[in-house]
Design a protein around this nucleic acid. Structure first.
Length: 637
RNA sequence: GGUUCCGUAGCUCAGCUGGAUAGAGCAGCUCACUUCUAAUGAGCAGGUCUUUGGUUCGAAUCCAAACGGGAUCACCA
């Protein structure tokens, strides 16, 4: 058991067992509340006395003194105590702290639970759209998902990292179509490919998705022009009537309402475009497994996967199991039919299938379109069931997806429960906030999207410049140097994105993200490198013999002792930010010690040895905790 | 409008199972390298914890309302 809990439990036990003797009445365990002692006050552990006062009917000071005396006599780890305005502060003996340091030193995997000792959990993250290259938002998603998986492993869970790849649907057909129609051919008669253009696969496909949108919008605008001129031949009368109705309704409206109406007209026109019709035809051909369409689809997807693979490599994330929507959507459909028979879903007149969630405070939600094709929800139901089939020992699933989909997941989990799946209660949406830029929201239309590859390249580049300027690089090979620049750049970026509570929306300042001072990844990496350098010069360490302990040293040990509880808390909260904040505290505390207390220069061998041991274990915990957020630490920098 | 998340220093964020004088980092101003890596440390300055009411011995923290901001409410994904 962790040292702090051990001490708290000992105190609690003695107080409860002797409450009759101490206070003349039996007390409730809930009034025994601990907290960390404030910095300004001497002490390590504080018992709050206020709750006792009501029961005991005496002053807080009296009660505190009574309890303090009693405990000091019976618990060896209590050196002495003080009562300050209703708080009973225990000073824990130096021996106890030093023995804790010794214990930490002996444990290789200090803070970690036994691997695979807890139920299996699947963590889904990343899950990109194959039409769009990964951007800043995906970086937060990937780092978060990867880190949560690591944190759960540290808590003893078996973890399966997965992602669902959104590889089918009308949007995919759009980029396929655009490539077929608009891609230029070279002298050999080939259209653009990653190999003949040198463009990264995901970027190339993304380019044609944008290209589609451009032509799509142009065609829609020209249709609106026709309509406005009264040229309505060849368009469905339903659309025309709706257009006339909308146009008339513009009369006397405010700007904002006008914009809404214009958007509706645009949608109307889009539905009449030949491009959309062609894309829809293509989707139908794809669903019918038309060989030519299927070949184009699998070829372009493979370009995207190659591109993503290289981005994931740069990110330092990986997956144990991939799911493809093209493989799970049919299962989802089957489940809907089963549910339809069981009465979970109902069919509307036009043939579409719905679920009524109004009794649960939600809306009616569609699960199958009237033409029988699936929607996002159907696929997610199928994927969830597929996963349980693949991994029967799965006890829960965590979906790392942005908070704009809070409603979707609420509905998804509810549907799974209504379908009678017991595991549905262990599905959890790890919902994280959007990443904003100083200029505001990222908008692809305004070109303010920060590309993941570009950003990673930039931070590594910046790390390179800084490190060449002030790093300790003598004797390193070019390969080692490049690894180091990468380590520092990516460490800074990951730490920057993970130090904020995942639930909250956060501000991403590009200039600040490559900063090296203050609460940053490189600040922590530097501390580690400095300790390693110290240890290299310090020689071997042996068991702790020292008995003195300076305040700065004790503060560092106290933080080390907390590490196991931090891992638990981070696991409970699914929050890498908890780990980040802890490492930062630890490093700050260590730096204070390092700056003020001599280590190698110390003449007393016992003290020197203890300080080296302390440093060694700080480095150990830094490295261990940084790995939980997917960051490596350098031996030197 | 319904639902939901959020509002703490100039900026970015901690703290929120109720507890002592609300903390960091950045930016600003001082100071400390012939020393174990100064990518560091010490200090100064900076606050009506959005507002109002309630619960309590005690509220940044819990409850309610108001104000301000985000997300979401498609036969899109």
């Amino acid at each position: 058991m962790e040292a702090l809990h051990f001490m708290e439990n000992q105190i609690k036990k003695i107080v409860l067992e002797n409450s009759e003797l101490l206070f003349g009445v039996n007390i409730d365990a809930s009034i025994i509340q601990f907290q960390k002692t404030r910095k300004e006050v001497e002490g390590d552990l504080t018992l709050v006395i206020f709750p006792f006062v009501k029961v005991l009917r005496c002053s807080p000071d009296e009660a505190g003194k009574k309890i303090g005396d009693f405990l000091q006599e019976r618990l060896s780890f209590i050196s002495h105590y003080s009562v300050v305005s209703g708080f009973l502060n225990f000073v824990i003996s130096n021996d106890y702290w030093l023995s804790q340091l010794e214990m930490i030193h002996e444990k290789m995997d200090f803070g970690f639970e036994k691997p695979n000792s807890k139920p299996t959990i699947m963590v889904e993250y990343s899950s990109p759209n194959t039409n769009k290259p990964l951007h800043l938002g995906h970086l937060r998603n990937n780092f978060l998902g990867y880190s949560v998986a690591e944190i759960l492993k540290a808590n003893g869970h078996k973890v399966i990292k997965s992602q669902i790849i959104n590889d089918r649907g009308i949007h995919i057909c759009k980029s396929m179509l655009a490539w077929e129609k608009f891609s230029p051919t070279n002298e050999k008669g080939e259209r653009e490919t990653p190999s003949n253009t040198g463009i990264k696969g995901d970027k190339l496909v993304g380019k044609y998705y944008v290209e589609f949108d451009k032509h799509f919008n142009a065609e829609a605008n020209s249709i609106i022009n026709h309509w406005e001129k009264g040229d309505v031949d060849g368009f469905s009368s339903k659309s025309i009537n709706e257009f006339i109705r909308l146009t008339e309704s513009k009369e006397g409206k405010e700007d904002k309402a006008l914009k809404g109406i214009d958007d509706k007209i645009k949608d109307l026109a889009k539905n009449e475009t030949s491009l959309l019709r062609e894309a829809k035809d293509m989707l139908i051909r794809w669903e019918a497994r038309d060989p030519q369409t299927y070949l184009l689809w699998s070829t372009m997807n493979s370009w995207v996967y190659d591109g993503f693979a290289s981005t994931y490599k740069s990110m330092g994330v990986d997956f144990d199991k991939l799911y493809y929507e093209s493989e799970t959507f049919l299962l989802g459909k089957d489940i809907v039919f089963e549910g339809l028979e069981k009465g979970v879903f109902f069919r509307k007149e036009d043939g579409s299938v719905w679920i009524d969630l109004t009794a649960d405070g939600l809306d009616e939600k569609i699960v199958l379109r009237s033409d029988g094709t699936t929607v996002y929800m159907t696929q997610d139901v199928g994927t969830a069931v597929d996963r349980i089939n693949d991994f029967p020992d799965l006890s829960g699933m965590i979906y790392t997806v942005g908070n704009e989909q809070d409603y979707h997941f609420k509905v998804l989990f509810l549907i799974l429960k209504k379908l009678g799946y017991s595991w549905a209660h262990n599905c959890f949406h790890l919902s994280y906030g959007m990443v904003d830029l100083p200029s505001g929201k990222m908008k692809s239309r305004e070109g303010t999207v920060v590309d993941a590859d570009d950003l990673m390249h930039e931070v590594v580049q910046s790390a390179k410049e800084m490190t060449q300027e002030r790093g300790y690089l003598e004797g390193m090979t070019d390969q080692d140097k490049n690894d180091l620049f990468n380590l520092i750049g990516m460490g800074g970026l990951k730490y920057y994105l993970l130090k904020v509570d995942p639930k909250k929306r956060m501000m991403f300042d590009p200039a600040e993200s490559i900063e090296l001072n203050g609460n940053t990844g490189p600040f922590i990496q530097y501390a580690h490198a400095r300790i390693k350098s110290l240890l290299a010069k310090g020689g071997e360490t042996s068991a702790v013999k020292a008995q003195e302990l300076a305040l700065a040293e004790k503060e560092v040990i106290k933080l080390l002792v907390e590490y196991p509880m931090i891992i638990q808390e981070a696991g409970r909260e699914l929050s890498p930010a908890v780990v980040c904040n802890y490492i930062f505290e630890l490093v700050k505390s260590y730096n204070q010690f390092y700056q003020n207390i001599p280590i190698l220069i110390e003449v007393n061998e016992d003290l020197k040895n203890m300080r080296l041991l302390l440093s060694k274990n700080v480095a150990k915990v830094i490295a261990s905790a940084m790995l939980l957020i997917g960051v490596n630490v350098p031996e030197r920098m």
